[in-house]
Design a protein around this nucleic acid. Structure first.
Length: 459
RNA sequence: GGCGGCGUAGCCAAGUGGUAAGGCAGAGGUCUGCAAAACCUUUAUUCAGCGGUUCAAAUCCGCUCGCCGCCUCCA
């Protein structure tokens, strides 16, 4: 399996540190608002990727932080005349509600920043001790110049960054790029005790701490997030972690592209956001996930209601086809990669830097086979072949987590269909059409072929 | 200014050296008692433009044009 690694700018063969195990850290939400569909992209992409790793037989440890104290949360609390804890609590709950609606599996660990303060203080202490950090009037800062590898992830040089940097308000900092490890509390701000004074952690430090604590290792396999986190957030994480441990922090950095609105990045500051919950109100998790996976994860993805509607139409094809297959009496079969060239191609596509659009195309290629076969006489051979096809589609949809729930229609509805077919044979079409109407009211459409009829639950 | 990405049919989107996947929409047709949200066929001699390398380029190189992102909070 190959993964594009931001650190090297190349696709690389994925080799986990420990055989059969993968440690994965995905940057999580800052809980000061409902998350939007742009935020949802990494959640969905990397949840699906985790699922794929599990399918491949890896044991995955998946950690995602919750930033529940920071300036934005504090400001929101002021604005709403409440406490930062209340704001964080509200949106943490909303985050879990929303990921559930999107059928995102809960992370194995969802550590909260406020519950890891002790470890963060310890890490800062080490950095101070090793001379990577210094204390000024408003906090403890990391000195980027002390860390020679600074910029290796985002391919930036300290000097060049300095030129582009804006006017720095804080003239006590040794370098404008130095970032806060610990911020001293101003009047009325929440604080925790520390050896250097009352305050709160800087943003980056939590990821360094949690990543190590919950994977149990200085070096993890995969660290993922939106491309906008590359600099400065991930760069700073590397600096902190590697300065402290002296070891490589992350082997593979994966970054997803933006969700755009009319070609422009969706972001809270621009204000062009569509909340994830606005989308889950209108579309099922499977359709939303398929929409997200319809573009390669590193490419930009334009969100429009028309585009997601197109995906819904395409998804219908999968849904309807699986329903038809469900209504065919078939033998129980097993499929293997060796026997199914479709499955093999599917896996090959995903093994190539998680190429989900290619993988989706393969699903549609198989669906075409169903359409060819379903019209034919149901010989043993055909039925067997349909069984194999169904298994393939289900397997693939499961891997991509776009498998819709397929129920056999109620006995009652099946009876109605049988009755209608008898009436049709007797050429009592008026009565037959009445039953058709009745079936439609129950939410099913009928599809008649030469030899049989199928009931299809409408999406 | 520095760094990075992108430009493939009406739209969405794979493909990164061997002759353009897949989806949506459209057009024509078929099945059917009727019908379908069913099925079939069809839709890029061409991949932003111009040069170059090569037996061979959407794919590699150079230049031009256009769009976007990061360098400040951001998924």
């Amino acid at each position: 399996m190959k993964i594009y690694n931001t650190l090297t700018g190349k696709k690389e063969e994925f080799v986990p540190i420990n055989d059969g195990k993968v440690t994965m850290y995905v940057c999580g939400p800052t809980v000061y608002n409902y998350f939007h569909i742009g935020n949802a992209r990494p959640f969905i992409v990397f949840d699906t990727f985790r699922n794929y790793l599990k399918y491949k037989g890896f044991e995955v440890i998946y950690v995602q932080n919750i930033t529940d104290v920071d300036d934005k949360i504090i400001n929101k609390a002021k604005e709403k005349n409440t406490t930062f804890e209340k704001v964080a609590e509200k949106y943490t709950k909303a985050y879990f509600d929303d990921i559930e609606k999107l059928k995102i599996e809960k992370p194995d660990k969802s550590p909260k920043a406020t519950e890891e303060i002790k470890e963060m203080i310890e890490l800062i202490r080490v950095l101070l001790e090793k001379g990577y950090a210094y204390i000024i009037k408003d906090g403890v800062y990391f000195s980027v110049e002390k860390f020679t590898d600074y910029g290796k992830l985002s391919n930036k040089k300290i000097d060049e960054l300095r030129e582009g940097a804006r006017v720095e308000i804080n003239d006590q900092k040794k370098n404008p790029l130095d970032f806060a490890l610990w911020k001293f509390a101003k009047e009325g701000e929440p604080y925790w005790e520390s050896p250097w004074g009352k305050g709160r952690p800087g943003w980056h430090i939590e990821c360094s701490v949690m990543s190590k604590k919950y994977t149990g290792a200085d070096t993890i396999d995969i660290h993922a997030g939106g491309i906008d986190l590359t600099f400065p957030h991930h760069e700073n994480e590397i600096a902190q972690s590697e300065a402290a441990s002296g070891k490589k922090f992350v082997n593979y950095w994966m970054h997803n592209g933006y969700v755009n609105i009319k070609g422009e990045k969706m972001s809270k500051s621009i204000g062009n956001i569509i909340l994830a919950r606005e989308v889950t109100e209108k579309y099922s998790a499977e359709v939303i996930r398929m929409f997200i996976l319809s573009a390669h994860y590193r490419s930009p993805l334009d969100f429009t209601w028309e585009n997601i509607e197109k995906i819904k139409q395409a998804f219908k094809d999968i849904y309807y086809t699986l329903q038809i297959l469900k209504q065919v009496e078939k033998p129980d079969v097993k499929i293997t990669i060796e026997e199914s060239s479709y499955l093999k191609n599917f896996i090959d596509a995903l093994d190539d830097d998680f190429n989900t659009p290619e993988a989706l195309a393969i699903i549609f290629n198989i669906i075409k086979l169903v359409k060819e076969q379903i019209k034919k006489e149901f010989t043993n051979e055909i039925v067997y072949s349909l069984a194999i096809i169904e298994k393939n589609i289900i397997e693939m949809c499961k891997i991509l987590k776009i498998l819709p729930e397929i129920k056999k229609p109620d006995e009652k509805i099946i009876k109605l269909m049988d009755e209608r077919n008898i009436l049709r044979k007797e050429k009592k079409f008026i009565e037959a059409d009445k039953i058709k109407e009745e079936i439609k009211k129950a939410g099913y459409i009928l599809e008649d072929t030469k030899t049989r009829s199928f009931l299809i639950h409408e999406l």
